[in-house]
Each structure stands twice: as C-alpha cells, then as structure tokens.
Write a protein that binds this DNA or RNA. Structure first.
Length: 193
DNA sequence: GTTCTAGAAC
DNA sequence: GTTCTAGAAC
C-alpha cells in the first residue's frame, strides 16, 4: 500500500517518485513569469490557472503565510496592501471586481481572489465552484480586514457550516433566477452580459 | 485544486 | 438514450 503525503512524495513506495502535490501549485505559479501579473516586496498577483470569471486574479504574500487562519494584527499592513492592489486593479479594469478569501481554502499560501462578477468562464463547472464565490463561503476582503482589526483573527467555519454552504441551492448572483442545474445557470449568466 | 467516470436524473 | 452530478484519486 502506498500513501501520498502533503509534500507529494509517495511513501511506502520502493521507488518513490518525487511529484509536487496539487495543493502546493500556487507556490509554483508565483515563480512562473507567465502567471505573474505584478509583484512588490510584500506580495505577488497571479492569474488564476482556472479562472471562474472573465477576470480572476490571486493576491499572495511573499511571506510564507499558510492561510487566513494564520492572520493576526501584525498582518494589518499586509492586508492593507492587498486592498491597495485590489483598488489599483479595479481602476485598470472596466469589469466590476470583488475581492475576498475562501472560508475553507484548498491550496496553500494565503491567497485573496480578485474576480469579476460576470462569472462567465469555461472553468466554472460545478455547484461547488459557484457556491464558493456567491455564498458566505466567500469572505469579502473588507470583512476579513475588519475582523482582524477587531478580533485579531478570522473565525473558523465549522464542518457543518461548510457542508451547508456548499449545498446551497443555485441562485443567480445578479437576479432572483434559480437555475435547475449548472448548464442552465451558465446559459442564464450570458443574458446579464 | 482538477480529472475521470459511474450511476442518478432526466 | 443522453445529460448531469458527485465521489475517488494508492
């Protein structure tokens, strides 16, 4: 029996092959000049490899911060720089953007999504994709900053809450339309553009 | 996070 | 019969 640890190194395997685990993919993208949009001494902006809207960037710190649950009051300056980049990108862009974090991120290194509200993309495929940007699973940048300033940390979402949010029935983010399935939602989104 | 695909839903 | 979703991935 062979298991795979988080570093992507197969263990219990006689000729263990070194392969990068998918959850570390953002660290690779940060070093890839084709992905990087801009960078400063504190942060890097990359294009999301599988964009879920016409515009979809990720903002990551240069420092090795695992996720939002590692944030504290010492990171307020960093978060404010995240906000400045968000403002800057919005000024450069005609599409309306929103910025925020996933309550339960799948990949390592803290990352803030900056995504346009159209949600039109071939990479948007599942209910989970939809609900991670359109329910309370998406923690708006402003809310996270406020929470850090007030409490010094982000409150964790319970497993039950997480499950409930992902199971939320499909609901258009721009009107009251409730599609029966993903293809119907994707078709409907085109009518808003 | 994605890909693949079995079986549910239609 | 086709479309769509959801769970495994060694």
């Amino acid at each position: 029996m062979s298991k795979r640890n988080i570093t992507g190194v197969k263990t219990g395997d006689t000729n263990a092959k070194k392969t990068k685990h998918w959850s570390l993919g953002l660290l690779e993208s940060m070093k890839d000049s084709n992905s990087v949009v801009k960078s400063t001494d504190k942060l890097v902006v990359i294009r999301d490899k599988y964009p879920k809207a016409k515009i979809h960037y990720l903002v990551l710190p240069q420092d090795d911060i695992t996720n939002i649950y590692k944030l504290n009051k010492a990171h307020i300056n960093l978060l404010e720089e995240f906000g400045n980049i968000y403002k800057q990108l919005q000024e450069e862009e005609t599409y309306s953007l929103k910025a925020g974090f996933h309550a339960v991120p799948s990949m390592f290194r803290l990352h803030m999504h900056i995504i346009s509200k159209d949600m039109i993309s071939p990479c948007l495929k599942t209910k989970i994709h939809w609900n991670s940007f359109t329910t309370a699973f998406f923690l708006p940048y402003e809310d996270v900053l406020k929470e850090i300033k007030l409490n010094g940390s982000v409150k964790k979402v319970s497993h039950e809450q997480h499950k409930a949010l992902m199971a939320t029935e499909l609901q258009c983010n721009q009107c009251s339309y409730k599609p029966k399935n993903m293809p119907q939602l994707k078709e409907h989104l085109l009518s808003h553009s």
